[in-house]
Simulated scan of single mutants.
Amino acid sequence: MLYIGNHTSSSKGYLAMGKQTLANGGNTFAFFTRNPRGGRAKDINLQDVQEFLQLAQENHFGKIVAHAPYTMNCAGAKENLRDFARETMADDLKRLELTPGNYYNFHPGNHVGQGAETGIARIAEILNEVLTEEQSTTVLLETMSGKGSEIGRNFDELRQIIDRVERKDKMGVCLDTCHVWDGGYDIVNNLDGVFTEFDRLKAIHLNDSMNGLGSHKDRHAKIGEGEIGLGALVRVIRHPATKGIPFILETPNDDEGWTREIALLRKEYEEK
């Protein structure tokens, strides 16, 4: 089965997100745990959660992907920024236990001049403080395009983080097709080779790219309208390494556009 959906607004609650996903033709979705630019998370309506869980079960949803706010920088040089990241992640993971067994995705962070090695150590330190044996949520490190001082520009940096985490069974990777392409991984001509480097693969952000291979720009494009192209992205969803994992569209679209993209990708997937 192909589990596919788009990044949706969490402002109306879980049930509304689930219903909009179904209206778009999807069976999974991603959402921000709070305002992507930071701030306090909204209170959760327990009845809303229960109604969503029933809807998801009845419609055979795949795992959903919660996304941490962009302002959460676990690699930050300033202690107050790391405190915010630590507190935000701990709070998010606690709240996500209301929808158990899903994913929590975050951008590893920016070392802002400290160097990647220091940034990697800081990220792992926070993960070791926050992850618990009891949690059912898997935490995903997202692949990045390598702009500025981003950590996660290649799998080696992600592996270094995971190697330092004590509870490795709680960790995974979310591969963003635009990010890895912009980061220099040729998923058009060497998809098999790329997937041999990305173990612990749990989810994919399926996006085309406005820029060329290795551009380090991170500019998403609609499916089939960028430098990666429809054919290569279809090979991603058909690849054995991605079987059963959620595909999340973060393309520059509205619900009508995502509905078209989901229908197109389902059609291409089923014609293999």
Score class of each variant (00 low, 15 high):
residue 2 L to A: 07
residue 4 I to V: 08
residue 18 G to N: 01
residue 21 T to C: 15
residue 21 T to M: 07
residue 23 A to F: 01
residue 36 P to M: 07
residue 36 P to F: 04
residue 37 R to S: 13
residue 41 A to D: 08
residue 49 V to F: 03
residue 50 Q to C: 03
residue 51 E to L: 13
residue 64 I to G: 07
residue 71 T to N: 14
residue 73 N to S: 05
residue 75 A to V: 03
residue 77 A to R: 01
residue 79 E to G: 00
residue 82 R to K: 02
residue 87 E to T: 10
residue 92 D to Y: 03
residue 96 L to T: 06
residue 97 E to R: 00
residue 97 E to S: 01
residue 100 P to F: 04
residue 103 Y to A: 10
residue 108 P to M: 11
residue 110 N to W: 08
residue 114 Q to T: 11
residue 116 A to I: 05
residue 121 A to L: 05
residue 122 R to H: 15
residue 123 I to V: 13
residue 123 I to L: 04
residue 127 L to N: 02
residue 135 Q to V: 13
residue 138 T to D: 08
residue 140 L to C: 12
residue 142 E to F: 00
residue 148 G to Y: 02
residue 153 R to G: 15
residue 154 N to M: 01
residue 157 E to T: 10
residue 158 L to V: 03
residue 162 I to K: 03
residue 164 R to V: 04
residue 166 E to M: 09
residue 166 E to V: 14
residue 167 R to D: 04
residue 172 G to T: 11
residue 179 H to G: 05
residue 182 D to M: 09
residue 185 Y to C: 08
residue 187 I to M: 00
residue 190 N to Q: 14
residue 192 D to G: 09
residue 197 E to D: 03
residue 199 D to I: 08
residue 202 K to A: 14
residue 205 H to D: 12
residue 205 H to V: 15
residue 205 H to S: 09
residue 207 N to T: 08
residue 208 D to F: 13
residue 209 S to W: 05
residue 212 G to H: 07
residue 212 G to W: 12
residue 213 L to K: 05
residue 215 S to R: 08
residue 216 H to E: 07
residue 221 A to N: 11
residue 224 G to L: 04
residue 227 E to P: 00
residue 229 G to M: 09
residue 233 L to Y: 11
residue 234 V to M: 03
residue 238 R to G: 02
residue 256 E to W: 01
residue 258 W to A: 08
residue 258 W to G: 00
residue 262 I to N: 00
